[in-house]
Design a protein around this nucleic acid. Structure first.
Lengths: 193, 193
DNA sequence: TATTGTTTGGATCGATCGGTCAATACTGGT
DNA sequence: ACCAGTATTGACCGATCGATCCAAACAATA
C-alpha cells in the first residue's frame, strides 16, 4: 500500500557526505544539503530525520567505505613496512590531489565536533583508535618477522604515526605546501626504520 | 572635546580572546562577546569594527603574547635540546591542565579558518613557520655543538616536530588521554636523539 | 553655561538558521 | 474504481545571526 521512495538513499547520503566533508557540520546548511542532494526539504527530514542524524549517517558511511576499507586493504597486504609506507604515500597523494582542500572527513570531524557531541565523538575516537591499532599491529608483526627493530615500542610509535598522519591531512588544507607534506611523510616512514 | 572610553581596550580584547579561543570564530556569537566583555554592542562595534576585525585583533594578541613570547623565552635558554624538550613538556602540561579543552588558539584557528580567510590565514601560517623555524634553529645549533646527530635533516625534522606538536594540542581536546599525549611527546623528543 | 563631538545603550534590521506541517501527489491493495 | 496510507512539496515558524542606526549621556572646550 505504501509507496516507493523516488530517490536512492545511498546516493543522497553520498551527496550529503560531500557537503559535510567540504564545509563541515556547522557551515553546511540544510539549504546546501537540499540543493546538492536534489531532493526536497521535507523528504530529507522524512528520510533521515534531521541535520544531526543525517551527519551521523554520512560519517558512518565514510568510516565504513573509506577508513575501514583502506585499512583492510593495507592489512591484507601482509607486509607491515610496506603497509605503513603505502598508508603515508596514500594520504599525501590524496592531500595533494585534493584541489578542494577537503582533507579527511574523519579528521576534520575530530577537530570540529570533538568536544560537543557524544555520538559523533564516539565514532571518530573509535576511528582514531583503529588507525592507531593498524599501525601497532604492523609494527608488532614487523618485529616478529625481524623487519623492524626490537627496541621500538609499538604502542607509542603507533600514536606518533597517527599524529603525523593527522597533521599531514590537516596542514594539507592550505597551510603547508606539497613538499612539506612529503617531508613529514618521509619522517613518518623513518620512525620505524 | 571628545570623551574617554569607559573601558580598557586591552582587557576587553583579553575577554574576547577567551571567547574566540574556547568557542571558535563561527560559534562565538556577538551576543557571547558582548556578555563576556561586559561592554555594549555599539561600543564593541565602535571600538573594534566588527566580528572579523575583533577576531583578528585577538588572534594577533595571542600570537604576540603567547606564541612569540614562549618561543623567545625558550630560544633565550641557548640550550637547543633542552629548549625542544621544554617545548613539548610545556604543551603537554598546558593540554593536561586545560580543563576547558580549549587547545591552542593558533592551531584551532588553522583548523577552523585555514581556508576561508586571507588575513587570518596569513597570520596563522606565519605562526606555524616561526614555530618550525624555532625547531630548525634548535637542531642546527645543536648539531654545530655536537649535541645532535649530524645525519638529521633540520628542515624536515623541524616540520615533523611541528606536526607532532599540533597533533598533541588537537588530540588533547578530548580525543586522547593524558598518557597518550605523553607518549607522543616522548616520541617527539626521541626524534632528535 | 552653551556648544561640540564622541561614546553609549538598545531597538531594530534583513538574512539565514534548523525544523515543522498541512495540502497534495501518488501507489498498492481490495 | 476506489480507498488507504505514505512520500513529496514548499510555505511557514520562531530563533538567532551579524550589523546598523539614532537618540540619550557625557566630557572637553569656548
Amino acid at each position: 500500500m505504501p509507496w516507493k521512495k523516488s530517490f536512492d538513499e545511498d546516493a543522497v547520503l553520498e551527496k550529503a557526505m560531500q557537503v559535510f566533508w567540504s564545509k563541515g557540520f556547522d557551515s553546511a546548511s540544510m539549504a546546501n544539503l537540499i540543493e546538492e542532494t536534489g531532493i526536497n526539504r521535507g523528504s530529507l527530514y522524512n528520510a533521515f530525520g534531521g541535520k544531526q542524524a543525517l551527519f551521523v549517517k554520512t560519517l558512518l558511511k565514510y568510516d565504513r567505505e573509506n577508513r575501514k576499507a583502506t585499512l583492510a586493504r593495507l592489512e591484507a597486504l601482509d607486509e607491515p613496512c610496506q603497509a605503513i609506507n603505502d598508508f603515508f604515500d596514500s594520504i599525501v597523494a590524496s592531500t595533494v590531489a585534493d584541489t578542494e582542500r577537503k582533507g579527511c572527513f574523519l579528521f576534520n570531524t575530530v577537530l570540529e565536533c570533538g568536544s560537543h557531541d557524544e555520538e559523533v565523538n564516539a565514532i571518530v575516537v573509535n576511528g582514531l583508535r583503529e588507525i592507531e591499532g593498524f599501525f601497532r599491529r604492523c609494527i608488532e608483526v614487523g618485529q616478529a618477522r625481524g623487519e623492524i627493530r626490537q627496541d621500538i615500542e609499538p604502542e607509542s610509535k603507533a600514536k606518533a604515526l597517527l599524529a603525523l598522519a593527522l597533521s599531514i591531512r590537516v596542514l594539507g588544507r592550505g597551510a603547508y605546501t606539497k613538499s612539506a607534506l612529503y617531508s613529514i611523510a618521509a619522517e613518518a616512514k623513518q620512525l620505524i626504520k
